[in-house]
Design a protein around this nucleic acid. Structure first.
Length: 858
DNA sequence: GGGAGAGAAA
DNA sequence: AAGCGTTCTCTCCC
C-alpha cells in the first residue's frame, strides 16, 4: 500500500502506533459495546500513565505527581472498594484520580488525519459509529469510572510552544498535538459530565435532596396540565425561583470547581505547579451522595445536585456544562507566568485575578434581575420559542423580588470565574422549551444571556456547552449561550477550525464524538430546540470588525476570498464594513470555488462552450515572491498568461465518447479518464481490478487502463491507474477470467511456498549427511567438534572448505528413502540446487516458522 | 487591549 | 502528464 506511509514527525507517534491504538480501541469497543465510553477513557488513562512514567523518568520532576490529593481527614484517596462490588473487575483497576498526565507522548485513539485519502477519514468515524450507546443502556451495565480528574493543565502544558519561539510555534506537529490534546480533553470532559449527570439520577442522592423542597414549591414546579400555557410557565418559573432560593441558601460552596485549562509556555510554569489546594474532592458516587447530604462542595457539584433535586420532584432537568478543554488553536491564553521567586507560594494577583477583581465590582450586573425574557405563547410555530419579548412588558407577579443578597450569602471561592461552568436547564412543557437556571453563580433563571464570560476570562470560556438529558443523551447548546457563535466562539472549537488542511474534519470528528451521546430519536421537542438553536445562529449580528468576517459561515469579504474563490456575478451586497473605506459584505453562499478546466475535468465536468473565465489566476513565479502581494484584482491577466478558471455553473457533466464495437475510446495517453464514475463511457464498464488488464489480454479484447487519479508523492504527480475499462458486454467474461487468474495465482503461490520449503528440507538433510560423513571419518571427538564449530562459524563456506563432501552430497536422491523415512517423503522431482545459497536459506527461515527454523546447519 | 497590516515559515 | 498560498506572529496604531 503505497499510500499508507507518510512521513511522520520524528518524535510524534508514528501512524502505525496510532493505528494500533485505534484498532485496539475498536476491539475493546466491540467486545462490550455498552462500555465504550469508559473503555475509551480507560485506554487513555493507560496511555497517559505510561507517558507519565516516561516523563517522570526523563525529567527530574518528582515521580509522584502533585495531584494526589487527600481529602482532609480521610483515608488516602482511593476509590472506595465497596462501591466496586457490582462492576466487572477490571474496570476498577484504574483509579481515575491521577488520570491525566503529561501528554507529550499521548496517543489518542482519535487521530486527526491529514493529507490522507478520504477512505482513511471514514475510519475515523467508524470508531464512533459502530459504537451505539444510549444512555439508558449504558446505565444498566456500567457504573462508570469513579471520577475524572480534569485538571489537565499541569501535564498537558508541556506541549505548549514557547511564545516567540517562532520556529517551534509554527510547527505542524505542534499544531497537531494541540488538536489531539484538545480532543482527548474533550472526550474526558464529556465522559466526566455524563457521569455526573448519571449520578444525578441516583435515587439515594435524590432522596437526600428531595426534602429541601416544600410541597408548595413542588406544586409550582409541577403545574397541572389543566392550567393554560401561560400559567403553567409562570408556575414553573415561580417554583424554580423558590427551589433556587432554597438551594442557594442551603448549599455551601467549599471547593473549587472545574476551570479552564490553560497551556503553559515553559516548563518553569509546570515545575511549581500545584493543583489548587481547594480543588473539588468529589471522586465517586459516595462522595457525591455525601455532598448531597451535607450540601457542601464545589459550585459544579452544587449545580449537579440542583439538577438532581429538580429531577427528584419530576422536573425534566438537564445538566449543562460548559466544557473547558485545552485550546486547540494557537493564540489561546496561557497559564499566568510564575510569579517571581520571592513569593512562589503566595500568588501575586495574576491576570485572572485582576480580571476577577475588576469584575467583582460589577457583579451586581450578573445577579438576578427580573427575568430577562419571557417566551411568548405561540404554539404551532416551531421556532416561535426563539422569539423573546422584552421583559419590561411583563414583570410577572410571581417573579420573586430582586434578590437582596441574602445574609446567608453564598460563600465564594476566591478567584473563580463569575460565570458558571455547570448549570441546569429545565423543560417548560407548556412551551416546549428549555430554560437555563443557575442557582449558585449568577442566580439567574430563564435568561441564557448571562452565561458567556468575556474572552478575557482566563478561568472560563464558553466554547462547548453541552446539555445532558437524564437518559445520558446530550445536545450541544453552545449557540443558545454564545453571543457571537459564528464570529467568535466557532474559532475556538474543533469544528470551527477552517482551513484548507483541516477542511471539515473537525466538524466530522465532533459529530462523531457526540454521536455516542446521541438522543435515540429526534422528537418534536428536540426538533423545536434544534430549530431554535439554528435560529439563534442566524440571528447573530453581523461582525463589527474585519477579522471576524474571515471564515464566517454566513458572510464573506472579498479580501478574504481564497485564490480559487470568486463571487458569483450577481452577488448581493449585504452591507458594508471596515474602518476607513467601506468594504462590501457578501453572503458566503455567493462565494464559489473556481477551478481550471483541468480541475473540473478531474471532477467529471467540462466547461460549457462560450463561457468566459470568471477570473484568470496569475501564474506564480517561484523565485519572485515579493511580487505576488499586489495581485489584488481578479482581472489580472497580464504578461503571466495565467490560468483561466470557471465556476461550477459554467460547467456541465462530461459525457465521454461511447464504446462502439467493443472499442474503448482513449485519451492521448492511451488511457481512459475515470476520475468519477460518471466518466465511464457509455457502453463500457470499469473493472477496477489489478488483474483486469491481464484478463483482457487473455481474452484478447480491447481494454483501456482506467486513470482514476494522481498521486502527489514527492515533487511530481504520478498517474494512478486502477483496472481497465472494457465494453460492457465483456463484463461477465472478464470477471470470470479475473477470478481464474486469481485462483491460479493462489495456486502458484502455494506451489512456490512448497518448493521453498522443500529446498529448506533438502538443505538440511544435505547438512546432516555432511555431518554424518564427517563424524564417520574422524575418530577423535575433538576434531569433530572443531569441524562442527567451523561449520557453525561459516555455514555458507562449506562448499569452499569441503568440496569433496559436497560432491558426495550431490547424489542425494539415491539415499532419499533413508532420510525421508522420518519426515514424510515429499522431495521434489526437480533439482533445486540453484537456489542453494546462503541468502536464500536465510530469508526463508522467516517465512516458514517451525520447520525452517531448525534446519540451519549446526 | 484588540484590530489591522505585513513579513516569514513551511 | 497535475500542487507553490496559507497562516502564524510581530508590530504598529487606535
Amino acid at each position: 500500500m503505497p499510500g499508507r506511509k507518510r512521513s511522520a514527525p520524528i518524535d510524534n507517534p508514528s501512524p502505525r502506533t496510532i493505528r494500533a491504538t485505534r484498532s485496539s480501541a475498536r476491539r475493546t469497543a466491540a467486545k462490550n459495546d455498552n462500555d465504550v465510553i469508559p473503555d475509551v477513557v480507560k485506554e487513555m488513562v493507560v496511555e497517559v500513565r505510561k507517558a507519565k512514567q516516561a516523563a517522570a523518568e526523563n525529567e527530574d520532576t518528582p515521580t509522584e505527581p502533585p495531584r494526589k490529593r487527600k481529602r482532609p481527614g480521610e483515608k488516602p484517596a482511593k476509590p472506595s472498594k465497596e462501591n466496586d462490588a457490582g462492576n466487572d473487575g477490571n474496570d476498577e483497576e484504574i483509579e481515575f484520580e491521577d488520570v491525566p498526565i503529561p501528554a507529550p507522548t499521548i496517543q489518542t485513539m482519535v487521530r486527526d488525519t491529514d493529507d490522507e485519502e478520504d477512505d482513511d477519514d471514514d475510519d475515523d468515524d467508524i470508531q464512533f459509529e459502530d459504537v451505539n450507546i444510549n444512555g439508558a443502556q449504558a446505565n444498566t451495565r456500567y457504573e462508570g469510572p469513579k471520577t475524572l480528574d480534569l485538571d489537565l493543565t499541569a501535564y498537558m502544558a508541556s506541549l505548549a510552544p514557547k511564545k516567540g519561539d517562532r520556529r517551534k510555534a509554527l510547527g505542524r506537529e505542534e499544531k497537531d498535538r494541540r488538536i489531539e490534546t484538545h480532543k482527548v480533553h474533550l472526550l474526558c470532559l464529556l465522559a466526566h459530565v455524563e457521569l455526573r449527570n448519571r449520578w444525578c439520577n441516583d435515587p439515594e442522592v435524590q432522596d437526600a435532596l428531595r426534602p429541601l423542597l416544600s410541597r408548595k414549591t413542588v406544586g409550582f414546579l409541577r403545574p397541572r396540565a389543566s392550567l393554560n400555557q401561560f400559567s403553567r410557565t409562570e408556575s414553573l418559573r415561580r417554583g424554580i425561583s423558590e427551589a433556587k432560593e432554597v438551594f442557594r441558601t442551603r448549599f455551601e460552596i467549599t471547593e473549587r470547581g472545574l476551570q479552564r485549562a490553560l497551556w503553559a509556555e515553559n516548563l518553569d510554569q509546570l515545575k511549581d505547579y500545584k493543583p489548587p489546594p481547594d480543588a473539588e474532592t468529589t471522586r465517586n458516587k459516595a462522595d457525591f451522595l455525601k455532598a448531597a447530604q451535607t450540601l457542601r462542595g464545589s459550585r459544579d457539584v452544587g449545580a449537579q445536585l440542583f439538577c438532581a433535586l429538580l429531577r427528584s420532584v419530576g422536573v425534566e432537568a438537564r445538566l449543562v456544562c460548559s466544557l473547558q478543554p485545552l485550546a486547540c488553536v494557537a493564540g489561546a491564553p496561557a497559564m499566568p507566568k510564575p510569579s517571581s521567586k520571592t513569593t512562589p507560594k503566595a500568588k501575586q494577583p495574576s491576570k485572572a485575578e485582576q480580571y476577577l477583581a475588576a469584575v467583582a465590582k460589577h457583579e451586581t450586573k450578573f445577579t438576578p434581575t427580573t427575568p430577562g425574557t419571557i417566551p411568548r405563547s405561540r404554539l404551532g410555530h416551531p421556532d416561535a420559542t426563539s422569539y423573546q419579548i422584552p421583559s419590561l412588558l411583563a414583570p410577572s407577579p410571581s417573579t420573586p423580588p430582586p434578590l437582596p443578597t441574602p445574609k446567608t450569602q453564598v460563600k465564594k471561592i476566591k478567584g473563580e470565574s463569575p460565570f458558571p461552568i455547570c448549570w441546569v436547564e429545565i423543560l417548560d412543557h407548556a412551551h416546549q422549551k428549555y430554560h437555563p437556571v443557575d442557582p449558585l453563580v449568577t442566580f439567574s433563571q430563564f435568561n441564557p444571556k448571562v452565561y458567556e464570560p468575556p474572552s478575557s476570562d482566563l478561568l472560563n470560556s464558553l466554547t462547548y456547552a453541552v446539555a445532558f438529558n437524564p437518559d445520558s443523551s446530550c445536545l450541544d447548546v453552545t449557540r443558545r449561550y454564545a453571543k457571537a457563535y459564528n464570529s467568535k466562539t466557532r474559532r475556538w472549537r474543533i469544528d470551527g477550525l477552517v482551513s484548507s488542511r483541516n477542511g471539515l474534519k473537525g466538524e466530522r470528528w465532533l459529530r462523531a464524538a457526540l454521536r455516542r451521546y446521541q438522543p435515540p430519536s429526534v422528537t418534536d421537542l428536540l426538533q423545536i430546540e434544534l430549530n431554535e438553536l439554528k435560529a439563534a445562529e442566524l440571528k447573530e449580528p453581523m461582525p463589527r470588525n474585519v477579522m471576524d468576517f474571515r471564515d464566517h459561515p454566513v458572510y464573506a469579504l472579498e479580501r478574504h476570498l481564497r485564490r480559487n474563490e470568486v463571487l458569483v456575478p450577481g452577488a448581493q451586497v449585504s452591507g458594508t464594513c471596515g474602518g476607513g473605506g467601506l468594504e462590501r459584505i457578501y453572503r458566503r453562499r455567493d462565494v464559489k470555488v473556481a477551478r481550471t478546466r483541468e480541475r473540473w475535468f478531474r471532477l467529471g465536468r467540462v466547461v460549457k462552450g462560450g463561457e468566459v473565465p470568471v477570473k484568470v489566476l496569475p501564474k506564480m513565479k517561484r523565485k519572485k515572491k515579493g511580487r505576488l502581494g499586489d495581485g489584488d484584482d481578479d482581472e489580472e491577466g497580464e504578461q503571466g498568461a495565467g490560468n483561466p478558471v470557471f465556476i461550477e455553473s459554467q460547467t456541465e457533466v462530461y459525457v465521454p465518447p461511447p464504446v462502439v464495437g467493443g472499442r474503448v475510446p482513449r485519451n492521448r495517453f492511451g488511457n481512459v479518464d475515470v476520475y468519477v464514475p460518471s466518466m465511464v463511457p457509455r457502453g463500457g464498464v470499469h473493472l477496477p481490478h489489478e488483474r483486469a488488464r491481464r484478463a483482457a489480454f487473455v481474452l484478447g479484447i480491447d481494454a483501456a487502463p482506467a486513470l482514476t487519479g494522481f498521486e502527489f508523492r514527492g515533487r511530481q504527480g504520478t498517474a494512478v491507474l486502477r483496472g481497465v475499462v472494457v465494453a460492457a458486454e465483456y463484463k461477465g467474461a472478464m470477471e470470470a477470467v479475473i477470478q481464474g487468474l486469481e485462483d491460479m495465482e493462489v495456486e502458484e503461490e502455494q506451489e512456490r511456498k512448497t518448493r521453498m520449503l522443500l529446498a529448506v528440507w533438502r538443505r538440511m538433510l544435505k547438512g546432516l549427511r555432511i555431518r554424518e560423513r564427517i563424524m564417520d571419518g574422524v575418530d577423535e571427538e575433538a576434531e569433530a567438534e572443531a569441524e562442527a564449530r567451523k561449520q557453525e562459524d561459516k555455514g555458507k563456506a562449506k562448499e569452499v572448505d569441503m568440496p569433496d563432501f559436497d560432491d558426495t552430497a550431490t547424489p542425494f536422491h539415491d539415499d532419499e528413502d533413508e532420510d525421508s523415512a522420518g519426515r514424510g517423503g515429499f522431495f521434489p522431482s526437480t533439482n533445486l540446487d540453484s537456489d542453494d545459497e546462503g541468502g536464500g536459506g536465510g530469508f526463508m527461515v522467516e517465512e516458514e516458522e517451525e520447520e525452517g527454523g531448525g534446519f540451519v546447519i549446526e
